[in-house]
């Protein structure tokens, strides 16, 4: 970024400074993903800054979800999937054979498109992660973790009187916030969100977006979304994926007002034919 007094940058000074100051949390270099014969991701190189929201946009099948699932090695569960290239988190290669993908997923949490609480009580939903990872030393500690997580997911006030009710009995938006609470209960560094609002109404969506705004001060958030407006609202950085390539990565204000690549512009203005 040059230092000319560009009014556009003036407008977003704070964000720009934050991004400049933050070191990249995730560094991806020449990532290629194959599903059997299909070449799903081609030479993707992206830096994702710490403690900010980075959104991936792009048409369906462009590889944005695939790349998201590379970051916590969720693609390992697909037998035909092959990943090449390097992805570093804090400078450590996550595809290092010595690294256990299950432990990685405890550090890189994930929230899915459809709210998918376990068909258990609200409490057990949140407590599950800390339990299996041994994050609490006592019942009281676990209670504290559950409450803190629900509070961080701004769900505590709504569910504190019915923690033993089934998580599936909540509304869609509440379920999604429960899923977020469940994810932050294990205190990950990175939270991946795969279209977290696509099944929600606008009010529930707004709550999740507000939540992301709060969470980004403590977590590095990567979100895949089909809603350009949502990407524009919640993220500081935006990457546009197209046909397995990363076409453009940049500050969100710049991407949405003055994208440099014509494909980005065509996509965000609705000109793809």
């Amino acid at each position: 970024m040059d230092m000319r007094p560009d009014p556009l940058i003036m407008m977003t000074t704070q964000t720009a400074q934050a991004t400049v100051a933050a070191k990249p949390k995730i560094v991806a270099r020449n990532v290629n993903v194959f599903y059997g014969e299909k070449h799903a991701l081609k030479d993707v190189s992206v830096d994702i800054p710490e403690r900010s929201v980075t959104s991936f946009i792009g048409p369906s099948g462009c590889g944005k979800s695939t790349f998201l699932r590379c970051i916590n090695r969720m693609n390992d569960t697909v037998p035909s999937c092959r990943v090449e290239g390097t992805i570093l988190i804090d400078g450590k290669d996550i595809y290092d054979p010595a690294l256990d993908p299950v432990q990685l997923r405890a550090r890189v949490g994930m929230v899915f498109q459809k709210p998918n609480p376990f068909p258990k009580s609200i409490y057990d939903n949140v407590a599950y992660g800390p339990r299996i990872h041994g994050l609490s030393r006592s019942k009281g500690e676990l209670d504290q973790i559950v409450e803190a997580s629900l509070r961080k997911a701004s769900l505590w006030e709504e569910v504190k009187d019915r923690l033993t009710d089934s998580g599936t009995g909540l509304s869609g938006g509440q379920q999604q916030r429960l899923c977020i609470a469940r994810t932050i209960a294990i205190n990950p560094e990175i939270i991946l969100m795969d279209e977290p609002c696509s099944a929600l109404d606008p009010i529930a969506t707004a709550r999740i977006e507000e939540l992301m705004e709060e969470l980004r001060h403590n977590f590095t958030i990567v979100i895949v979304t089909h809603s350009m407006q949502q990407a524009a609202r919640v993220s500081q950085q935006t990457a546009f994926f197209h046909l397995g390539h990363v076409v453009e990565v940049g500050e969100t204000p710049q991407i949405f007002t003055n994208p440099t690549d014509k494909r980005t512009q065509d996509y965000i203005t609705g000109r793809f034919g």
Binding site: N72, M74, T77, V102, Q103, R105, A106, R107, G109, M110, V111, F112, K114, N116, P117, F118, P119, Y128, G129, I132, H133, C179, R182, T183, A185, I186
Partner: peptide, 27 residues
């Protein structure tokens, strides 16, 4: 059992076996 439950468990860092025995099998 919907795959979303499996994914949810894997997403909070459960191993495949934990996901199966804690969530899929009871369901």
């Amino acid at each position: 059992v919907p795959p979303s439950i499996r994914e949810a468990a894997l997403g909070v860092g459960a191993s495949h076996q934990q996901a199966v025995f804690h969530h899929v099998l009871p369901l």
